[in-house]
Amino acid sequence: MRVWIMTIGLLILSLVAQPVWWFGLIREWWTADRRIQRERQNFGSAVYADKYEVRHFVLMSLAFGLIVSIVSFVVGMTVPITWWVCYTLLALIMIMIGLGSRLPITIFVGSVVLYDWFKHSHLSQQIMGSMQPLNFSGRTVSTANLVILLAIVLFMLGVWLKRVGGRFASPKIFAQKRGKLIAGYPFNELLVVPALVLVPGNLISTHFAFWPVLSIGGTSVTPLFLPLLFGLNLTIFKQNPKAAFQRLAKGFRILGILVLVGGILSFFAKSAVLIVLGLAYVCYVGCLIKTRWHDRRQSFWFSKVDHGVRVLGIKPETPAAKMDVQVGDIITNCNGQAVSSETNFYEALLLDPTYCHLKIQTPEGDLKVTETAIFDGAPHEIGIVMFKD
């Protein structure tokens, strides 16, 4: 019992010492600070004052890490130590230069291609031979294992995006060529999931006798945390951002299932590994291109209008959050007064400082009416975000 407690403690310690996870956390903190500063500059106050990116990173990385680790141990996921080192270094470098959220799948696929090339090169035999005295296992691990791991990453990427994509629609103001202002909804979050995997050999325990070593099928393997990158950097201009990210999330989940099938088949046809890997990457890029294309072909823009005020965001825990008001709606009338600017809107709110009655036109052209009580004498706290005058 004491041995198992020590083993779990050591694994947790190795998780805490993960540099990729800590750099990812710092990066998310910086991203949240930039977003809040941008919101204050564009709208006078932050739409979302809390650093929700940091909260997502901490809570979801640990939750997803537990799930992926359990799945990994159940299926006995074994990865080569050379690929583990390559992927970890690439992930760390990309986070440090700010590309972690843009290239998570590219980093994964690229590292697998590098490993496959290295495995079949003369350089591999020389390096692995020289490291045998260090108990560096030269046992070949099937690349199909990495395809299976990619399938898990793609599926979990879809689950993560379904959970957080568009949930916090933070608008960003852009100027078109003719100076017309429009709003876009950027999603720029990163997640580092510490997944427990097995690597052949007992390299670590050779130098640190207390490190746990397992035996599977008569082969020694060492459990290590692999920092899996999840991320997306995409801006939506012409759709409801939550709906757009939900569709993309569904595409990733379906792709993950298809890649899983291809990975299983790759165990029986080893020559198909790189084909499945290449097709998976092409389909992943295709999902992103399709989302951008679908967004660009819409006629709707989150732009200023002359016959009302455009709703760009809803602040949480405000009266507006309780009303039937959605991002993209146009408020045409407030408390019986026609409105066409932010100033008009707040002047109309002052006509009844404790209640708000709105007439709204949806992006589809439908009309609706909604009302709610507001904070007495504080109309600016209604929580509706719109273009500044």
Rank of each mutant, 00 (worst) to 15 (best):
126 Q>M: 13
287 C>E: 14
101 S>W: 07
311 V>E: 00
136 F>D: 07
55 R>E: 08
324 D>M: 11
66 L>R: 00
226 L>A: 02
72 S>T: 03
312 L>I: 05
146 L>W: 11
197 V>I: 14
180 K>R: 14
74 V>F: 14
301 W>H: 12
154 L>I: 13
174 F>A: 02
192 V>P: 06
348 A>L: 01
298 Q>V: 06
41 Q>G: 04
262 G>A: 10
111 S>A: 15
386 M>P: 03
3 V>D: 15
173 I>E: 05
186 P>V: 00
317 E>H: 14
47 V>P: 04
162 K>P: 03
228 L>K: 07
174 F>Q: 03
99 L>C: 03
61 S>K: 01
157 L>Y: 08
300 F>I: 02
200 P>S: 02
30 W>G: 05
29 W>P: 03
349 L>Y: 06
200 P>I: 01
245 F>S: 06
365 G>H: 03
196 L>N: 11
199 V>R: 05
137 S>G: 08
34 R>D: 11
305 V>F: 03
213 V>S: 13
273 V>G: 07
20 V>N: 12
95 I>H: 03
304 K>F: 00
251 G>F: 04
212 P>T: 09
314 I>M: 05
123 L>P: 00
281 Y>A: 09
41 Q>I: 02
224 L>A: 09
77 M>A: 08
223 P>V: 07
66 L>F: 14
92 L>S: 09
124 S>E: 13
169 A>S: 15
381 E>C: 05
98 G>L: 07
72 S>M: 03
62 L>A: 15
191 L>C: 12
12 I>H: 00
375 F>I: 14
253 R>M: 15
75 V>T: 05
324 D>Q: 13
368 K>A: 03
21 W>L: 10
370 T>W: 08
300 F>M: 11
34 R>C: 01
75 V>P: 00
345 F>D: 01
363 P>C: 12
40 R>F: 05
192 V>D: 06
204 I>G: 10
303 S>M: 05
221 V>I: 10
44 G>F: 04
139 R>Y: 04
60 M>W: 13
17 A>V: 04
219 T>N: 13
139 R>A: 12
23 F>I: 09
31 T>N: 12
293 W>G: 01
348 A>D: 04
99 L>F: 11
381 E>A: 12
75 V>H: 01
10 L>S: 06
189 E>D: 13
353 P>D: 11
161 L>I: 10
216 I>L: 15
325 V>T: 06
105 I>A: 12
202 N>R: 10
76 G>N: 02
331 I>A: 07
281 Y>R: 04
346 Y>S: 00
47 V>S: 02
37 Q>M: 09
169 A>E: 05
283 C>M: 14
91 A>T: 14
132 Q>P: 00
99 L>R: 06
67 I>C: 14
291 T>V: 11
237 F>Q: 04
331 I>T: 04
236 I>A: 04
241 P>Y: 11
303 S>C: 06
367 L>D: 05
235 T>Q: 09
43 F>Y: 10
2 R>L: 15
22 W>V: 10
324 D>H: 10
313 G>K: 01
124 S>L: 07
367 L>N: 13
246 Q>R: 10
201 G>H: 11
385 V>K: 02
230 F>A: 00
198 L>R: 10
32 A>D: 14
277 L>Y: 07
280 A>V: 13
236 I>Q: 07
